[in-house]
Design a protein around this nucleic acid. Structure first.
Length: 215
DNA sequence: GACCAGGCACATC
DNA sequence: GATGTGCATGGT
């Protein structure tokens, strides 16, 4: 298996892009929908999230943050049932909505005026938004050049020797962000490509002859 | 029926 | 700081 170093990361990206093509992430019509999707997809297959999003849309919950809040936690929980962990996720969505109401007058535009470090800090202060959800929101909803580290990133790149198994989120993120230009389009596509690679090849790693990273 | 999926908070040591 | 556990549905 080929060892991957920091200087290889751009080449790995180019290789994945050639192999899979652009992924067109994040799947979502509005900024609010992307944020909701980021919370719903926590430890959950996206297929299940799609059903929950579709239920929310039909109920008008994605029309605006205040529209969703009016439904209340119990109804939100019922609507997002297909996404799993529906009680905790309904609570987390409500935590975000309360945060948005109290600190930013329900306005994502207000929120988007914050500089990236402060925006990240504020999002992380919401109970239920951890580093990956936060960075997905920063990257995909607010188009900030923040690299998202997920389970696939950890699994694939630790196997290829880029970092130790069990390395912290921040450590792994720093490796990518120190090695790549701060380009939100690059980070967007890279993360999406890693997920695609993980879904299609990860279980065969590290002995997968067809792995696009081995060639 | 077991195992997994685009995490996170909390308890405990 | 590290480790274990609860949360839950739907696809393979």
């Amino acid at each position: 298996m080929r060892k991957i170093g920091r200087s290889d990361l751009k080449n790995v990206y180019d290789k994945l892009l050639r192999h899979f093509g652009p992924q067109g992430w994040w799947p979502g019509d509005t900024r609010f929908e992307i944020i909701v999707g980021a919370i719903l997809t926590q430890n959950t297959a996206w297929k299940n999230v799609e059903k929950a999003i579709s239920n929310l849309k039909a109920a008008g919950a994605l029309d605006s943050p205040s529209a969703m809040m009016k439904l209340g936690q119990r109804r939100i929980a019922r609507l997002i049932r297909p996404a799993g962990y529906y009680n905790v996720k309904a609570k987390r969505l409500c935590n975000f909505l309360r945060f948005l109401r109290s600190r930013h007058d329900f306005s994502l535009d207000n929120l988007s005026r914050l500089k990236t470090p402060l925006l990240r800090q504020e999002l992380l202060s919401v109970n239920g938004i951890g580093p990956e959800t936060c960075d997905s929101i920063l990257l995909y909803a607010f188009r900030r050049p923040i690299f998202v580290v997920d389970a696939y990133t950890k699994r694939i790149f630790s196997r290829h020797g880029l970092f130790e198994t069990g390395s912290s989120y921040d450590h792994i993120q720093k490796i990518f962000m120190d090695s790549l230009l701060p380009d939100h389009i690059l980070y967007n596509e890279y993360h999406a490509l890693i997920v695609r690679l993980g879904k299609e090849h990860c279980r065969k790693c590290p002995n997968c002859a067809e792995c696009p990273l081995s060639g």
